[in-house]
Simulated assay, not measured.
Amino acid sequence: MSFAEPDTSPWTPPESHDGRRGPRPSRARAAAVAACVVLGVGLIGGAVAGSWLTGGSGSDGSRDHFAAAGQLWHGVPVDELFPPTVQGEGAGPGGTDRTWTRVAVAPDSGCADAFDPLLRQALGPVGCLRLLRATYTDATRSNITTVGLMFTKADAAAMAALRTRFEKEGLDRRTDLMPRPYAAEDTVAAGFGDGQRASWTISVLTDVPVVVYAVSGFADGRTVTEPQSAADAMRSGATTAPAQSGLGHEAKGLADRIERGLRKTAASATEQPS
């Protein structure tokens, strides 16, 4: 395919309606027109980029990324989703550092036995495709935390709707909607059952079809009579046992870092080659 040769003849002003030549446009006017063109192109480009970054429905790339991320559960090594050691710089009370060591990984499964009935019902609109779980202990081996990744069957709109509902109704703070822990024999988490749940967090993601959660407790197996959500336990002045023991920070800090790793893995796995 060839392009027409550029016209190098001197510019001739157009004729006016009365047959006279129109005035030659000034350099300032020409510059202003060019600036408007550049600005318009920039605004259009910005709008397209914004749609991609926010996962707008007009972006095929976002939809492809979302769909591909939902398949990570069977194509990514366990050590990538749940690293053997997780560093939590500034994750503890007062900005102290935390280090979590993995003590057990559950076989991937469905969600039938992983949630109490009410939480299973609350998560029902997005469907459970697969559930991955691992349990960690802190450096002192006095606290334990199970973190889970529930891969859903939902599209981005359904995930956004569920997130809105959780936020508006405060479902992530209700004690009757706590996730269940994963206990493993012959580990420090062997006695981590429903009665040992102390603090928890639940995050419904909208850029990938995943619900991230974590639930923490004491490693000595003590029963907790006043469990408290991580959001409430981390508030200044909270006096419950989970708050005083930093278990809200344990759940929130570990969940956040597993979530960041998931997003990084999803981005790497679904990026298009240049």
Results as ranks from 00 to 15, higher is better:
residue 111 C to A: 09
residue 76 V to Q: 07
residue 247 L to R: 00
residue 131 L to R: 04
residue 171 L to D: 05
residue 206 T to H: 07
residue 117 P to R: 08
residue 249 H to T: 02
residue 254 L to G: 04
residue 43 L to P: 12
residue 56 G to V: 03
residue 74 H to P: 04
residue 235 R to V: 13
residue 101 T to S: 13
residue 232 D to A: 02
residue 103 V to W: 07
residue 204 V to G: 05
residue 97 D to H: 05
residue 130 R to M: 12
residue 108 D to R: 13
residue 260 R to D: 10
residue 167 E to W: 11
residue 194 D to T: 15
residue 192 F to N: 10
residue 208 V to I: 01
residue 32 A to L: 07
residue 269 A to P: 12
residue 196 Q to P: 11
residue 73 W to C: 06
residue 18 D to H: 00
residue 20 R to N: 03
residue 238 A to I: 05
residue 222 R to C: 05
residue 197 R to K: 02
residue 189 A to W: 08
residue 208 V to D: 05
residue 184 A to H: 12
residue 193 G to H: 15
residue 221 G to W: 09
residue 230 A to E: 00
residue 149 L to M: 09
residue 175 T to V: 07
residue 170 G to K: 11
residue 43 L to C: 15
residue 41 V to Y: 11
residue 97 D to G: 05
residue 96 T to L: 06
residue 227 P to L: 00
residue 4 A to R: 11
residue 109 S to C: 15
residue 144 I to W: 09
residue 2 S to Q: 10
residue 44 I to A: 12
residue 68 A to W: 04
residue 21 R to P: 07
residue 100 W to R: 06
residue 244 Q to V: 10
residue 274 S to K: 12
residue 271 E to Y: 14
residue 198 A to S: 02
residue 155 D to A: 03
residue 267 A to I: 15
residue 161 A to F: 02
residue 164 T to H: 13
residue 270 T to Y: 06
residue 150 M to P: 01
residue 221 G to C: 08
residue 247 L to A: 01
residue 154 A to P: 11
residue 193 G to D: 13
residue 148 G to A: 05
residue 205 L to N: 04
residue 152 T to R: 03
residue 18 D to L: 00
residue 49 A to E: 13
residue 108 D to E: 14
residue 23 P to H: 13
residue 57 S to L: 11
residue 158 A to M: 05
residue 131 L to T: 08
residue 247 L to G: 00
residue 209 P to K: 02
residue 15 E to S: 14
residue 148 G to Y: 04
residue 43 L to M: 14
residue 226 E to W: 01
residue 130 R to F: 09
residue 198 A to C: 02
residue 222 R to E: 06
residue 226 E to N: 02
residue 250 E to T: 10
residue 25 P to L: 04
residue 250 E to P: 02
residue 116 D to S: 09
residue 233 A to W: 00
residue 26 S to I: 00
residue 137 T to R: 11
residue 13 P to R: 08
residue 88 G to A: 06
residue 118 L to S: 10
residue 147 V to L: 02
residue 43 L to D: 09
residue 23 P to I: 12
residue 1 M to H: 12
residue 21 R to A: 09
residue 31 A to G: 04
residue 240 T to C: 01
residue 206 T to F: 03
residue 106 A to V: 14
residue 44 I to L: 11
residue 80 E to A: 13
residue 91 A to G: 04
residue 116 D to Q: 13
residue 169 E to H: 13
residue 215 V to C: 00
residue 237 G to Y: 02
residue 144 I to E: 09
residue 128 C to Q: 06
residue 209 P to I: 00
residue 194 D to S: 13
residue 67 A to E: 06
residue 128 C to M: 07
residue 75 G to K: 12
residue 123 L to D: 06
residue 107 P to M: 08
residue 216 S to W: 00
residue 273 P to E: 07
residue 220 D to N: 08
residue 266 A to K: 03
residue 56 G to I: 03
residue 43 L to S: 11
residue 66 F to M: 05
residue 150 M to T: 03
residue 151 F to T: 02
residue 114 A to P: 04
residue 267 A to S: 14
residue 163 R to Q: 05
residue 176 D to H: 07
residue 236 S to T: 15
residue 36 C to W: 13
residue 224 V to C: 00
residue 16 S to H: 10
residue 249 H to E: 01
residue 129 L to K: 12
residue 109 S to D: 14
residue 145 T to V: 15
residue 135 T to G: 10
residue 141 R to Q: 11
residue 12 T to G: 09
residue 144 I to D: 07
residue 195 G to I: 15
residue 189 A to L: 14
residue 50 G to M: 14
residue 131 L to W: 10
residue 78 V to F: 07
residue 143 N to T: 15
residue 143 N to H: 14
residue 164 T to W: 08
residue 8 T to F: 13
